[in-house]
Design a protein around this nucleic acid. Sequence first.
DNA 1: CGGAAGATTGATCAGTTTCAAGCTCCGTGG
DNA 2: CCACGGAGCTTGAAACTGATCAATCTTCCG
Lengths: 228, 228
Amino acid sequence: MATIAQIQDMALFRGLTAEQLQELASIVVEKTFRRGQTIFREGEEGKGFYVVGFGKVKIYKLSRDGKEQILHIFGPGEPFAEVPVFAGQCYPANAEALEESRLWFIPRVGFIELIRRQPSLALNMLAVLSRRLRQLAALVEDLSLKEVPARLAAYLLYTADQKGSLEFDLDIPKTQLANLLGTTPETLSRLLSRFAKEGFIESSGPKITLLDKKGLQALAAGLRRLPA
Amino acid sequence: MATIAQIQDMALFRGLTAEQLQELASIVVEKTFRRGQTIFREGEEGKGFYVVGFGKVKIYKLSRDGKEQILHIFGPGEPFAEVPVFAGQCYPANAEALEESRLWFIPRVGFIELIRRQPSLALNMLAVLSRRLRQLAALVEDLSLKEVPARLAAYLLYTADQKGSLEFDLDIPKTQLANLLGTTPETLSRLLSRFAKEGFIESSGPKITLLDKKGLQALAAGLRRLPA
DNA sequence: CGGAAGATTGATCAGTTTCAAGCTCCGTGG
DNA sequence: CCACGGAGCTTGAAACTGATCAATCTTCCG
């Protein structure tokens, strides 16, 4: 059970009446997870979806031999695992808390009832899924059409933009970043060195400073190639 | 303008009243495309979505230097390009007719009105997008965690299953298949030879015969490796 | 202080792409 | 009717990107 104040802040639930918010609050279940704890596994039956209260959650696929590809990382306010609510009923990927996290679980049945009675909620959810599709299409594009240096450059630029500063700390461990970029920790490490050697960035531990934004943009677009 | 009979056959529109079907039919616009014709390009504003009447449509991303990654191939009855209807307004990828195709175009504004008044339509659309997300997640998994032989084996098994026979014709040119699998025509050609040499398949031109389904399944799962 | 997890570095290797050339099939025009 | 020409496909050799394996180093808690 969550408070109405917490719920009505979230974009997904914009447009609901006070009454409907109340109804929603009454079916929401709060769950907390420790760092590293599994939230659900691919193939498990999904009886509802989640919204992140605080913390960070990764959604990922695993290969037979344990290699991991992260599909998304979700933070506060973001819903995830909606797919089994509307199609199939099993989760299409795994979910794990990257840090101590508080999640709200919204059961399928009650939520679908709510959608039936409130078209704006349906449209909000359609918007969420559409944005998700856009993101996944971009991930496919990155993995298939771009090289690792381009992906890393794009990630650094994006993160700097998010943080609003050229100097920032990576907010996930480098191993996780490697998995998100579809590469290995070794390759990531080498690339950061090369970026630094070429004067694109400065880096020490999780701290990154972008020195040459134009250059990184050219790398991200595949216009420039990194010297061996 | 489409006939009601055509429309009500499609899963997406299951559950609409006769009146609503009539209304839908009145806003639908029929468009035809020749083989190879562009339907829309990434970044263009999208004023609605499409449903395939007959023909085949590919949705794809392009890299700066012209490499192509196909995201989906849609056939009769399947809707596509819904993303700009609900989020953003520009198409996230390109669309091209793979053969002579008749499409129905459903304008954004009228459709959203319809959704507001008919929850079952919203739920149907949520199901469509959810399935799409599942497919894209699977594509990411394939591209990132599996090798090309595994993807090809999976594709052949899937196609045989679709066609209901171990002997079938590829229904897209091999160049397109290579783009769908995230590889090149050369690699695809070599792999088909190797598959044949190892006795997994027989192939001549577009005709494929699966000889060793178990073996292909092992390849697809990454359990077996192809000899050099 | 000890130990484990994460990060770095070096050497090697495998899978796939790229470039280049030749082939096959087919529709077209002489 | 046959020759031409082009698109798609195949094949070979070379190059490259990124992965893997292994060892070392660092960090950060308990």
